[in-house]
């Protein structure tokens, strides 16, 4: 497919659920996946049975099922966000060092994380605002960012003040260096790497309109059918 200057695939920006559905469709069948706390958790609602995805939760489980309700709630069975969850047939439990070895050893195919900022070369900032009075808490963010084969970020493109979260260099403290491979936002899907930023598709704007919002040079890649 030839390089296009207009890669718009939706007439309007995507809502949180539409974006989650798009991420879910992009996950290859059979993958082992960790979904971060917050918006990435929505992705699990759109994974199909045919995809045969195994979800990892870093507190020590593969084969995590949906959130538990009512009688299913068991205080010994929670996810990384400390929400009660269920186990699927074929699930496994392991201790924390094994669970992080699954990430750190490069065994996870994809992790999906939220972000404050992503840089043009895939640096990630998602754990700390850097505010002097903030109590820092990192959890597994740095391990996830560094260990998974692919790191997808889900975020709104702009802050409430209209500033781009895709930036030349992160101003917030880093979680990982050059680790993000894709950024899913309400306005576009970006591919990041050492060669800069490509736009796979846009939602509700043209590439030119997108470029006006984002302070890093963008280039189009051929739209990928999903």
């Amino acid at each position: 497919m030839s390089i296009q200057t207009n890669v718009q695939t939706s007439a309007t920006p995507l809502g949180r659920d539409e974006l989650a559905a798009l991420v879910a469709r992009d996950i290859a069948p059979g993958s082992f996946v960790n979904l971060g706390i917050g918006q990435p958790t929505l992705v699990s609602n759109y994974l199909s049975e045919e995809q045969n995805i195994t979800l990892h939760t870093e507190n020590g489980m593969l084969g995590m099922g949906p959130e538990a309700h009512g009688d299913e709630i068991d205080g010994d069975l929670i996810n990384a966000g400390k929400i009660p969850v269920t186990e699927l047939p074929g699930a496994s439990y392991f201790h924390h060092a094994d669970s992080f070895a699954i990430m750190r050893g490069g065994h996870l195919d994809i992790c999906v994380l939220g972000a404050f900022q992503v840089s043009a070369t895939g640096d990630l900032a998602n754990w700390h605002t850097g505010a002097p009075d903030a109590i820092p808490a990192v959890g597994g963010a740095m391990d996830l960012a560094t260990g998974a084969k692919d790191v997808f970020v889900m975020m709104t493109l702009l802050t409430r003040d209209g500033a781009s979260k895709l930036v030349e260099q992160c101003s917030y403290p880093l979680t990982g260096v050059g680790c993000v491979t894709r950024v899913y936002t309400d306005k576009a899907v970006f591919l990041t790497g050492p060669d800069g930023v490509s736009v796979r598709e846009t939602f509700g704007c043209t590439l030119e309109e997108l470029q006006a919002l984002v302070p890093v040079p963008l280039k189009a890649v051929a739209a990928v059918g999903v």
Binding site: E58, H95, H96, A97, S99, F100, A101, M103, R104, V138, G139, G140, A141, M142, D143, T146, G147
Partner: peptide
Amino acid sequence: PQGNLAERIRAAGAGIGAFFTPT
């Protein structure tokens, strides 16, 4: 970082003096 916490604890139990990690 949580994985470093787990691995540093594991290393203590396994008699490992130190390690390098990308995290």
